[in-house]
Design a protein around this nucleic acid. Structure first.
Lengths: 338, 338
DNA sequence: CTGAAAGCGCTTACAG
DNA sequence: CTGAAAGCGCTTACAG
């Protein structure tokens, strides 16, 4: 049997066992001012009764939930996996709990979870919203501060920590250009601001080099990328290289290239986001932008704590630079593409 | 500013606004028996006040936390990522919340988190414990049922859902044997029961084929595998093939092979766990055992719910079969290994 | 069907 | 330093 259904002891039981008032027990537990003698008796009683505080009661009474909410699109996206791990570490370290929710880029689910967060009376929220929700975030009248991650705030009404997406995408274009590629296509996600920002960096960098941008926006799945690449590479204007805005798309490109028998980078160069462990192992290695995931998670928590301490201070946006990790998938262009 | 610090309204405010008692409000919220007229007035008042229930209060009063705990070694392990996503979906679907903790295979952290679970008065726990904690789990006197996942219960005192690890490992050995490999080495994790079970299947299958097992136990990191392979392949008794017990080790083997210039499968065949998306893309594709991750998560929740309904029914162990996904990394052995 | 009252397990002024 | 008392926001017998 798993559950001995033994009912938990309360602060009252401890008080009785120690021969003191519940107030004294509470003070010992909360490191309040208590004489050594009573403290000792209470501590013994805690051990004897196997007492464990009831956090629901504590939260209700103290009006502090000590909880941070974390809403991301999908924990299986390795970027969010890493960020959420960093957030959890920081939270538990600070004696807080985290409630994690997956929105699947679905505004309705976001709304549901935001409501849940209200009901949990969370201390603050770390949030990677869809574009739709981002647009109406201000009107939502949430009762807790929110720190945006990954996705960008238009008006700057919320603290945020984001990658410098335009610059990162531009780095990829510049790198490909330096390696001799000219017909550089772009594949961007169509649901988040991230895709849009990376597209903007791509577009600007292409223009700066006097190249013609050719971007397509697709659903954020590997399959969508695979299909897009296959179709595109069958066109007369097929590109020599792809810049893609996430690691699912990287998979899609590699799969399509393999299926069509296109060597990388011989017939098709590829660069994208993010530096997942496996990108080093695929083909000649994939050139990617690495995001400082640990720092993103840690910084989001830090911004949240600062906001809680100074509710009225001006909003901050932390823009972190990505790193370009160059690998074989963008090797120098040697042969004509056709 | 992010936090309008507007204090939340309570059931009392709603009662006042609707001109009814708090009991009636509570009944409307909980779908209790209330006349249509009052129900309507309360619902209007809820909207007017923007009322959101306080879950801490609800939990305290009802003595139901509606919370399932989930303790895994590391959410960044893709197996646990997928399982936890499935658990969360099932939980939210059932109106429950989940508290996720990463133990890092560290028994002290496990103890810490088990204590946290007690304090949260969780309804039940889904747990992938270390060997050390598994051994003393019975003596811990937890006040909630626990369903083990991934790691195996020795005595069967807890419900569990696990892969048929011995059989899965044996499948890999049999497959390599059929492809002509004979000197098949094994690399297994040294912290979990999973590694031990997969080793046992490997050992038995090798013996059944009249082959000599050669297993090493290493820390559960890619680096450890890479190092182990490099050292082993420099030996006189270097293997023709590796069976490894997780996907981190797969990465390690591929890296080592690449560094040493050993072609896969020409000079070294590889097979292992799990079927991560990238295993299809690395080298000639990696032969792996696929676990039914969705089903593991879902089943764990199902077992938990059944246990809650029937606390005294006999313990169940759900043993799920893996699937062998054959790819190029175990291509037929063509050349002599040296 | 409805309301007044008790109480879940805590913390925190308030007296002493 | 210590205790009696109030109360956080709910739910749930208990009467009516």
């Amino acid at each position: 049997m798993s559950a001995p259904a033994k009912t938990a002891s309360s602060i009252k039981d401890v008080a009785r066992a120690a021969g003191v008032s519940v107030a004294t027990v509470s003070r010992v537990l909360g490191n309040g001012p208590v004489s050594e003698a009573l403290r000792k008796r209470v501590e013994d009683a805690v051990r004897a009764t196997g007492y464990r505080p009831n956090l629901s009661a504590r939260r209700l009474r103290s009006q502090h939930s000590q909880t941070v909410g974390l809403v991301v699109s999908d924990i299986r996206n390795p970027f969010f996996t890493a960020v959420s791990r960093a957030v959890e570490d920081a939270a538990y370290h600070a004696g807080m709990r985290v409630i994690l929710c997956n929105s699947d880029e679905n505004p309705e689910r976001e709304e549901l979870y935001l409501r849940l967060m209200q009901e949990e009376r969370i201390t603050g929220l770390i949030f990677a919203p869809t574009r739709a929700t981002l647009d109406r975030l201000d009107r939502l009248d949430l009762e807790f501060p929110v720190v945006l991650i990954d996705r960008n705030a238009p008006a700057g009404r919320h603290d945020a920590v984001v990658l410098d997406n335009p610059q990162a995408a531009a780095m990829l274009v510049d790198h490909l250009h330096a390696r001799g590629y000219r017909r550089i296509a772009g594949l961007f996600g169509n649901t988040s601001t991230t895709g849009a920002e990376r597209h903007e960096g791509y577009r600007a960098a292409m223009a700066a080099k006097g190249l013609v941008p050719a971007a397509r926006f697709i659903a954020p799945y590997a399959d969508a990328a695979e299909e897009a690449v296959e179709r595109w590479m069958a066109d007369a204007d097929r590109p020599e290289a792809f810049v893609v805005s996430n690691s699912l798309f990287l998979m899609g490109v590699v799969k399509a290239a393999r299926r069509m028998g296109l060597s990388i980078p011989g017939r098709l160069a590829v660069a994208g986001f993010d530096n997942e462990p496996w990108t080093e192992l695929v083909g000649p290695g994939l050139t990617v932008i690495e995001q400082p995931v640990q720092e993103i998670g840690r910084s989001a928590m830090a911004l949240l704590f600062e906001r809680l301490e100074q509710p009225d201070r001006p909003t901050r946006r932390l823009v972190l630079a990505g790193t370009c990790v160059v690998r074989g998938s963008t090797g120098a262009r040697l042969e004509a593409a056709d």
